[in-house]
Design a protein around this nucleic acid. Structure first.
Lengths: 229, 229
DNA sequence: AATCTTAAGTAACAATTATTACAAACCAAA
DNA sequence: TTTGGTTTGTAATAATTGTTACTTAAGATT
C-alpha cells in the first residue's frame, strides 16, 4: 500500500474508470481514503474519452462545458491572435488539467487558445457543474485545482521571461531541450516550419539559427529531425 | 442595505478594520450574512497595514509569510531576471490580491517579482496560515481567491500577447492608455526612462517612438508629462 | 540671472529579426 | 530511374530595435 496525495488518488480513480475497472475493485482499492459517496459520485459523472493525434482538439470560441483532464500523452497549449499568429505557451503533461479551460469555463472571457496533441493522447472531460460542485465539497479536488493554477502560473511567468529577456537563439535552444525532455529522447522529430510557428517567427529565421547551433556542435540536423548533442 | 458578493463583504470588513470601526458597528452591518464566528475570527487575525509611496515593497527572495490585500491605491507588479532586467506584468488595483504572492507562499518556488506602489497605497497583510484555513472553511473567501487567479491569468495572457504579437510602438501606446485609465487622467506624469524600464527597452527607443506618436497627433509631450489626445 | 542637475532630442551606427526569392537536397511514389 | 512534392539552405535586403555619444531644453537652486 503506497501513499499518494489525495488528488492523485482521485486521479487514479479516473484512470481506472478509463480502463474499465470493475467498481468493486475500485472500491476495494480506494475506500480506505475516499468514502463511498465520493466514489459513487465519480461514477455518476458523464465522462467521455477522446483519442487525439496531432490535431486541433479545443478551439475555444464559446464557453466550454467540460474541463479536460489529461490521462496520457501530452498537449501543447498555444495562444492565437486575431491575425492567426501563434505562440506556444506551455505543455500539458499526463495528470494535469488545463487551467486555461478553467478560466474560460468560469469566467465570461472568450479566450483564443488552441490545444494541439503532439502524440496520441487520452483525456477525460469533466462537466463544469461537477467541477464547481467538487470545488466546494471535496478538499482534495480543491487542492488539485489550486495546485494546477500555481503550476500554470509559474509556467506562464517563464513564458513571459522567455519572451521578454531571451533572444531567439536562446529561446530556440531551450525549446529544443524542452521537447527532447518531453518526448524522452535526444532526437526530435519536427520540421523547421513547426518550430517557427511555436516560437512565432519565420522558418528562415529558425533554419538560420539551427545552422548556427549545428556549427557550435550543440545539435545535429537532418531532414525532419534534430538531434541534441 | 445594499447587496454585495460575499467576498466583497469580507473585504469590506477588512476596510472597516483598517478604518478602526468599532466591532459592534461591524457586527451590526455584516452579521446578516456572515455569522459571528467568522467575524470573530477575522478580528483575531494579526493584520497590519503599510503605507507605501513609490518604492519597492515586496522583494521575494524567501518564501512569504503574508499575503497582501490592496485596500487603496495601485501597485505594479514587475518581473525581474538575474541581470536585473525588468518587465511590467500587470497592475494591482484596490480590492485585489496578488496571486503571485499566493504562488510564492504555497509553492516552494522562489520567484523574482517586484511590487512597486505608483501612488500612496494601503494594504493589509494576511498571514498564510489564516489564508489556508479560510480556503478550506469559507466558501466566499475561496471564490475570492479563485476569481483572483482567473483575473491574473487573463492579465498574464494579455501580457504574453503584448510581448509576442505587438511591436514596441503599439505596446507603448497601449501602456500609456492603461496608465491614463489607472490614474483616471489623460495626463500622465512620468519620465521616458521609467516607461523604458516598464517595457524593458531603452530610453532612447521610447523617446523616439513617443516623438512619432506626437507627430501622429496622438499625444502631447512635455518634460515629465505626457498628455493623451 | 547664472549655475547645476535632470530629462529629452537627435544622429549615427550595430545587432537582431523579418521578408522575399530561389536553389539544393531529400524522400516517396509512379 | 524519373517525377513531384516537401523540406532545408542561402543570399540579399528591409525593418525593427538596441547602443553610444552628444546636444539641447527645462526646471530648480543659489
Amino acid at each position: 500500500m503506497f501513499l499518494l496525495k489525495d488528488y492523485q488518488i482521485l486521479f487514479k480513480i479516473y484512470i481506472s474508470l478509463f480502463l474499465n475497472m470493475k467498481r468493486e475493485l475500485l472500491e476495494e482499492r480506494f475506500d480506505y481514503i475516499l468514502d463511498n459517496n465520493l466514489i459513487a459520485e465519480i461514477f455518476e459523472v458523464g465522462t467521455f474519452k477522446k483519442y487525439l493525434t496531432n490535431d486541433i482538439i479545443i478551439d475555444i470560441d464559446q464557453p466550454l462545458t467540460h474541463i479536460p483532464l489529461l490521462l496520457d500523452g501530452n498537449i501543447k497549449i498555444l495562444r492565437e491572435d486575431k491575425e492567426g499568429n501563434e505562440l506556444l505557451i506551455y505543455f500539458l503533461e499526463a495528470g494535469e488539467t488545463c487551467t486555461m479551460s478553467l478560466t474560460c469555463c468560469m469566467g465570461t472571457t472568450k479566450s483564443k487558445i488552441r490545444a494541439v496533441a503532439e502524440k496520441d493522447s487520452t483525456l477525460i472531460m469533466i462537466p463544469v457543474q461537477k467541477m464547481q460542485n467538487w470545488l466546494d465539497n471535496n478538499s482534495s479536488w480543491r487542492n488539485f485545482i489550486l495546485e494546477s493554477y500555481q503550476t500554470r502560473f509559474t509556467e506562464m511567468l517563464e513564458t513571459i521571461d522567455n519572451l521578454a529577456f531571451m533572444k531567439m537563439d536562446e529561446r530556440l535552444y531551450k525549446h529544443l531541450k524542452e521537447k527532447s525532455k518531453l518526448h524522452d529522447s535526444s532526437t526530435i522529430i519536427v520540421k523547421h516550419q513547426d518550430i517557427a510557428e511555436d516560437l512565432h517567427t519565420s522558418r528562415v529565421v529558425i533554419s538560420r539559427l539551427l545552422k548556427q547551433l549545428e556549427n557550435d556542435k550543440k545539435i545535429k540536423l537532418s531532414r525532419n529531425k534534430i538531434e541534441i548533442l
